[in-house]
Amino acid sequence: MLARFALKLSLKLIYVGLSLLALSVIVFVISHFAIGDPLQAFYGDVIERMNEASLARARARLGLDEPLIYQYLNYLERLINGDLGISLRYRMPVSKVLDGLFFKYFFLGFSSYLLVFLCATLIAIICALYEGRLIDKIICSTGTIFFYTPAFILSVILILIFAIHLQILPSFGAYDLGQESNLKNRLYHLILPLSVMILTHVWYYGYTFRNKLLEELRKEYILSYKAKGLNNFEIIGIKCLRNIMPTILNFMAISVPHILGGTYVVEAVFNYPGLGALAIDSAKNHDYNLLMCIVMLTGLLVIVSALLAKTLGEMADPRLKNALEVNHG
């Protein structure tokens, strides 16, 4: 049992490693074809005053005269050693720019991820309970409209209503000046971005879960629950929900890039400091060194969290685990 678990774990780790390797190849190739001279990016305007010999020396030092495959290996080595290159805009190492940002502002993404799925499940249960009635129809049509509203429009409209006209919520930033460690102030600033995230993402998942619940409700075993005397809420909210739990966890595994992409736009609109705002800022300034590091970081985050959710999903579904064991042994 333990050996099998260890084998499975190591296989998964190999998968993560391979995915990251593939990602690094893609990023390297893109950076190689990027417009702009890497020499100029590294040395700045000094390069125009260099003569041929020192140019060649500089090229050799940066490894630019070697074959492409060696350049890639060098790049990989630097990446593993934590040397991420130099940000062209901030004129300092990328690792210094990203330092602390990653975990400090991980908050918005993580909380919206959890809340989206919580709300989606709740909405699915409510819709399934009142299937075909007015509440279901209202939720369905509002949900569809919100789903197709681009996040930035919704953000701007919410800012217009709550920050400008009613003046009850702040419209930008993660905290007021001098209130960095004040948790209440931070939560207060989180309300608007978080509600945009939930409103624009919840319906896609809520609708899928609703349909799954209804599908489950049509199955025969429900009849025996009804005969047993359980009411509708108990059947849907407890029995059916437990059966579609693996589907929910599976969706959670593949939805990380979807929700993360949403936070990028929302962060940019609300000036909420984080990876997304930084990514858009660096795209505006053609700082592709920094941007590629953000891509690598995001890829790492997505692959690892997808793996985590997948493992959780397998643990939550005894049927799936049995099926796996039958396959392997």
């Binding site: 593939a22 893609i26 795209a283 053609h286 891509v295 890829g299």
Partner: peptide, 25 residues
């Protein structure tokens, strides 16, 4: 297909941004 999966692991908006820096559009 596997490499597509890897690209898919990056949010779409980030792919647009990355390609956008290269094309300067």
């Amino acid at each position: 297909m596997r490499s597509l999966e890897v690209i898919n692991s990056i949010p779409a908006i980030l792919v647009v941004l990355l390609l956008g820096t290269l094309i300067r559009s």
